[in-house]
Design a protein around this nucleic acid. Sequence first.
RNA 1: GUCCCCAUCGUCUAGAGGCUCAGGACUCCGCUCUUUCAAGGCGGCAACACGGGUUCAAAUCCCGUUGGGGACACCA
Length: 531
Amino acid sequence: MRSLRKRPHDGFDRVMWPCEWLDHFPASTTSLRKCCKAITKSRIKGKYDKIMKIVTRFAPSPTGFLHIGGARTALFNWLYARHYSGVFHLRIEDTDKIRSEAASINAILNGLNWLNILWDGDPIFQSTRINRHIEIIKSLLKKGAAYYCYATIEELKEMRAKGKNTGQFIGYDGRWRDRDQREAPPGVLPTIRLRVQREGETILNDLVQGRVTVMNKQLDDMILLRADATPTYMLSVVVDDHDMGVTHVIRGDDHLMNALRQAQIYQAMGWEMPQFAHIPLIHGPDGTKLSKRHGALGVETYREIGFLPEAICNYLTRLGWSHGDIEIFSTNQAVTWFDIRDVGRSAARFDLAKLTAINAHYLRRMADSQLVKLLLPHIKTLIGVPVDTVGQCRLEAAMPSLKLRARTISELAKAALFYVQPRPLSLNKKACQYLDSFGRATLMVLAERLAASCRVWEAQALEDDIRQLALEQNLTLGALARPLRAALTGAVVSPPIFEVMQILGREESLARLDDVLACQCEVLSYQCEEL
RNA sequence: GUCCCCAUCGUCUAGAGGCUCAGGACUCCGCUCUUUCAAGGCGGCAACACGGGUUCAAAUCCCGUUGGGGACACCA
């Protein structure tokens, strides 16, 4: 349940709320809330287009892979921009050169590409904009909105410790706020801090979290320029968002407090603030912020495991956002339906089981030929050699059945392996158990019958034949199918065995039976131990 | 510790004061189909954190409590 009372209606209330919209309201006692719902998006959208172009951005710092939380933030920004025919930018926040890595940048770019979250224009590297950031800091200094601070690291540590002990103030105490620079200690390189307002409160009308208020005395004078003359994130992000014309900042809830602090920079510069939407974080199974500690993986790892990008996007979009009861939707549907107002306010736990279930759905819907393409690298890894043309044909023919039995590409690869493994097939332990002396005797009869059979090698005909044989031998079909499956697939679980025979073909099927029959019991059991 | 945010089945969620002794999805458990395993079909278990208000009527609005999370760097 979410309350609209505290939430701004959307990003545009300041532009056209409420007088223009009131014309659309029915002249009844129906509440304002219901009217908001009643106005169709298309009508609103027509107005948006005339009034303002939506600009969103995803701004990761390249300090690691693109994780699942980052991917969702990117996705929400992308969806929002696309929904309103706006612009979605990618900005790499690489101002901390020590922690930024080229490999991370690649991982982020590749991850977004794979998920088909495509940004407009070239990625913007924050590090290339340092001169502009410094220019703004100088201008703040000139306005008296910023000042030099000569406090040492040790002093700052002391302040924090004192704050915690007294349970009062936390952070910088403003000791250089009004002090004469001529008192500067020799040899200390200064930082530049923002002169944050002391009185009153700062209010943020967040599109997701609603109205958030904080007393200004809770905000200390944050550093804009480090002692090494590099700008901090807090400053850069504001300058870049402003210069890029970002209208909507959609980011993780962990930035909520930053928005309050950044508001002071916007104010000091006299810039209009963008709309903020702080989306709830994704939590691990234990309910805390998803992190490496939970074994959180980069999106490329999900790719390697065999998840489909459509499935990941579907799952991630549905995490914290909903459109009624609809669970499965296409990207186009998501773009049509997505709006920040439908994003929930509470954190969601990452549930691999549900992701896997959604992946299974997309896997089944995917074209067989396309699946084979995705499957080949996985199988190559398993058998060590590329799959030949015959193998590829078998895989494609088998795909309709195989894909019902797998939820990820790697599961699919394991299930499909027996189709392309070279003879003699290795058998797993359970399969060996079905090939005891009784099983082998049964198989012998079966092999003779199949070898002598003149009928076409086709699933239905084979099934008819073997059912007939079962009748003659006074056996159940299962009693024949079990050793047959063991010998042909090396396992006790497989797609329907007559279909398997058809796809393997007469020659290969009979050869696999011969392999087992030619093999001594001791060898079989030896094989089992190996497995 | 201080500040901020959050609260419906185990998980993701529907819910806009009366259509709801709360619906869907995942998970789990039955049954069915069946040559195995799946898939499919049918069914089941399972939630409005608590306490006060407001109202004819509260999961829904207000206040408080409790619980959970996040932020408190010369990181981003």
